[in-house]
């Protein structure tokens, strides 16, 4: 087993994990009962899944200029995604959306 086939296996594993995390985030956005709890998968799992797919692209690429662009996109995602989540939560709170309590009906 040479060097490049190990890299391909690592790329495949990271790609699978990233797709799984994005799938979990989508299921969470559909399944959770109210707006505030839907923020949790959109803020955490989604950004981690995207970062994993981009890291797998980095390993596939090797070290070139495209890798630096991918690193910039990953850093940007980890700054921007929580900020967008926080902005939406703030807008909902200012608009008077009440959080769901355990035992109520799903909204």
């Amino acid at each position: 087993m040479d060097h490049s086939s190990i890299a391909i296996i690592i790329v495949g594993i990271l790609l699978f994990l990233g797709c799984f995390l994005i799938f979990v985030a989508s299921v969470g956005i559909v399944r959770f009962p109210d707006f505030y709890s839907r923020l949790h998968p959109a803020g955490k799992t989604d950004s981690m899944g995207q970062a994993m797919i981009l890291v797998s692209l980095m390993i596939y690429e090797g070290f070139t200029l495209a890798t630096i662009k991918l690193i910039i996109i990953v850093l940007f995602i980890f700054i921007v995604n929580p900020t967008a989540t926080h902005a939406l939560a703030n807008a909902a709170h200012a608009g008077g959306v009440v959080p769901w309590r355990k035992g109520e009906k799903k909204r």
């Binding site: 985030a25 839907r38 989604d46 995207q50 995604n81």
Partner: peptide, 13 residues
Amino acid sequence: CDRVLAINAIGTK
């Protein structure tokens, strides 16, 4: 807000 959250998630995908 739900709709905007979903559109944001689609955009990041």
